[in-house]
């Protein structure tokens, strides 16, 4: 076989693989949207679930919980993840200790989420005495988002050319100022990617939340913004089911008559939510990066 032909065949193969991946994605999203889109209307987005007898209603609390849980999780994950990533990339000296940390991070990121859920049940739900709560859920999610975040931040920082650091240090800028003002802005696109990946896991996670944030949502009063009130949506110590948990629960143990309809609508809503969130995070990140680096 001559080189030209081999090259052509290989090229076609790669195109086919790319096409295959794209079509799987397209079929999946298409199917979910086709099944669920007609269920979604204003009532579905803004109303709580109806009663078992009547069915109907919406998924407003679950939708809110998904995003609120994301915020809580990121409040924990981002500072620690950034700190860990900065430490690993800039301060950790090669050796036994660093290797240990790296190994721990890898083990942590490969833990099955159900195990993290049970661990969260013991530690964040029972030992703390909080019961099923958003905060317990956020802590459990942080447990497996942290390794991802640390790794992505470390890689993003390491990918910033060494010359940038040298230039800054040679000007008499301290190591810390160099990290904050030169390296992190340059590493921002990579960090945003990590943030989006971690967010995706929060939106999609169900197993770890079953035992930590719980499967139910109390009746919420969306006009009550006092975080200490049990009916306030902002209360971090209330139980909360996210959209993903809701889908699982509706499909597996619900007895409402329109269960499949609700599940389909929730799935579609979840996908749309994730898409909008990803796109806007990327867009915001790009905007911020351009502002910091003056590229256009």
């Amino acid at each position: 076989m001559n080189a030209k032909l081999t090259d052509r065949i290989a090229t076609i193969c790669f195109y086919l693989i790319a096409f295959l991946i794209l079509s799987v994605l397209a079929i999946l999203i298409g199917f979910i949207l086709y099944q669920g889109l007609h269920v979604i209307d204003w009532t579905f987005i803004t109303q709580p679930p109806g009663s078992i007898l009547t069915g109907g209603g919406g998924v407003a609390p679950q939708l809110f919980n998904s995003f609120y849980l994301l915020v809580l999780t990121m409040l924990i994950t981002i500072p620690i993840g950034l700190g860990g990533g900065i430490y690993m990339a800039e301060y950790a000296k090669p050796g036994k200790w660093t290797q240990m940390i790296r190994l721990s991070i890898e083990v942590l990121s490969s833990l099955p989420s159900i195990v993290v859920g049970l661990f969260g049940l013991l530690l964040f739900v029972q030992l703390t005495g909080w019961g099923f709560s958003l905060l317990s859920g956020a802590l459990a999610l942080s447990v497996f988002n942290l390794p991802l975040m640390v790794r992505v931040v470390e890689q993003a920082i390491s990918a910033v050319p060494k010359e940038q650091t040298e230039a800054s240090l040679a000007l008499g800028v301290t190591h810390w100022q160099t990290i904050m003002k030169v390296i992190l802005p340059a590493a921002l696109p990579g960090i945003i990617t990590g943030f989006i990946l971690a967010s995706g896991r929060v939106f999609g996670e169900a197993a770890a939340l079953l035992f930590t944030a719980g499967m139910t949502s109390p009746v919420l009063d969306f006009t009550n913004w006092d975080p200490s009130s049990p009916t306030s949506p902002l209360n971090p110590l209330r139980p909360a089911s996210t959209l993903a948990v809701h889908i699982w629960k509706i499909n597996s143990e619900s007895i409402v008559s329109d269960a499949s309809k609700i599940a389909a609508g929730s799935s579609a809503l979840l996908i749309i939510g994730v898409l909008i969130f990803n796109l806007s995070a990327r867009f915001l990140g790009q905007w911020f990066y351009k502002k910091l680096t003056s590229t256009r």
């Binding site: 050319p161 010359e163 940038q164 040298e166 230039a167 800054s168 040679a170 030169v182 802005p185 340059a186 910091l292 680096t293 003056s294 590229t295």
Partner: peptide, 11 residues
């Protein structure tokens, strides 16, 4: 330095 290394910032 040997290789021009301006910061990824404005002039």
């Amino acid at each position: 330095f040997q290789k021009p290394n301006p910061f990824m910032k404005s002039i």
